[in-house]
Design a protein around this nucleic acid. Structure first.
Length: 354
DNA sequence: TACTCGTGGTA
DNA sequence: TTACCAAGAGT
């Protein structure tokens, strides 16, 4: 099976920027970017990243805000902060050389079992298994596993299979071959079993259970929150209007990114009342709501929001960053410089059109 | 173990 | 519209 799969890979592998020129650094960056993220989405981010941060030393010497700005829109922002932190660690304690031992890699921020195995096998040719979403799907079909995916039992079996079937001569190519197969042939829906090179080895194909594999655990209902945000404008004589931005806490959702302040609308509270309350709590200030600014819907991983924004003014008060790490007044033309999540970027783009 | 953490594409 | 997905890691 390994030989047939590798032959298929040699004939069908995708041409990708991180495959064209192989270095541990490029492999590392690509693997982090590709976590839970599509190849087509990653490519332009990867190319831009390599222009700005071509090596570990450059990344370590950069400030986190420029790293987050480059990452804006890619999601899971903890990954960008972990890349920056890891670059600093490698620069300060490892002679600026990326480690080849997967056990050492796993101690670095943002590198878990999958990513360590992927980098070790792909960049260093080491015999390390790498179990990602594609390979879980491929093996759950070839072995016809009826255990629910992601259960500890299933994980143990899948890692065991990945270890045992790993091609000892071409471990990196083998891992990538399984991922490309999962992407092009053994897809989540409508798999192309007729074109699959390892169909003769697939138990689920024999048993007619391909469509039932992998077995997924029942998903839970996702809540939908109503939230409100303030576009606080400051107009001063002979100066362009400026707008208040707050920097979110370092950890958690959209950590260290900038936003227009606000929060969840509670029961028996209007959007406007919510905003007055939130700004008192977060900035120790009283705002005047001028008019509605816009409504925005967005789906995060495990909840959805409908956000109502309002244009506001704050007079001569000096807002206090009680919850935020920092606040700043930014002119419309400078809003692009601050890393933001999707909704706040949409609001910022709308401000520029005023 | 179960939950948190983004965004855009697709059935 | 909704649900699910797409090269997972951290807590």
């Amino acid at each position: 099976m390994q030989k047939i799969l590798l032959d298929w890979f040699d004939r069908n592998k995708r041409t990708l920027p991180w495959r064209t020129t192989r270095t541990p650094y490029r492999t590392w960056i690509s693997e982090i970017m590709l976590q839970q993220t599509r190849v087509e989405t990653v490519i332009p981010y990867f190319l831009r990243w390599m222009e700005l941060f071509p090596d570990v030393a450059t990344l370590a010497a950069s400030d986190e805000q420029s790293v987050l700005k480059c990452w804006e829109g890619l999601g899971y922002y903890h990954r960008a902060r972990a890349l920056h932190q890891t670059a600093i660690i490698i620069n300060q304690t490892m002679g600026c050389v990326f480690p080849s031992d997967p056990k050492v890699m796993q101690k670095l921020p943002g590198i878990g079992r999958y990513t360590a195995g992927a980098i070790a096998s792909i960049a260093f040719g080491m015999r390390a298994a790498a179990l990602d979403g594609n390979i879980r799907r491929v093996y759950s079909r070839t072995a016809d596993i009826s255990l629910p995916l992601r259960s500890s039992e299933c994980e143990k079996i899948l890692w065991q299979i990945a270890d045992e079937l790993l091609d000892p001569d071409r471990p990196g190519d083998y891992n990538e071959a399984l991922m490309d197969l999962g992407n092009a042939i053994c897809t989540s829906s409508n798999p192309r079993c007729e074109s699959c090179p390892i169909q003769p080895f697939c138990l689920a194909y024999v048993n007619h259970t391909v469509a039932m594999r992998p077995v997924l655990a029942a998903g839970k209902a996702i809540p939908h929150y109503q939230v409100s945000a303030a576009v606080i404008r400051k107009s001063e004589n002979n100066q362009p209007d400026r707008f208040l931005l707050a920097q979110r806490p370092a950890n958690g959702l959209l950590g260290n990114l900038w936003e227009f302040p606000g929060g969840k609308i509670e029961e028996d509270e209007t959007a406007q009342e919510c905003l007055q309350r939130e700004i008192r709590e977060e900035l120790n200030s009283n705002i005047s709501i001028i008019k509605p600014f816009g409504t925005y819907r967005h789906a995060y991983t495990h909840f959805r929001v409908t956000l109502q924004a309002f244009l506001c003014e704050i007079g001569d008060q000096k807002p206090d960053p009680v919850e935020a790490q920092a606040i700043t007044w930014a002119a419309a033309e400078d809003l692009d410089q601050f890393p933001m999540g999707k909704i706040d970027r949409l609001i910022a783009q709308q401000i520029k059109k005023i």
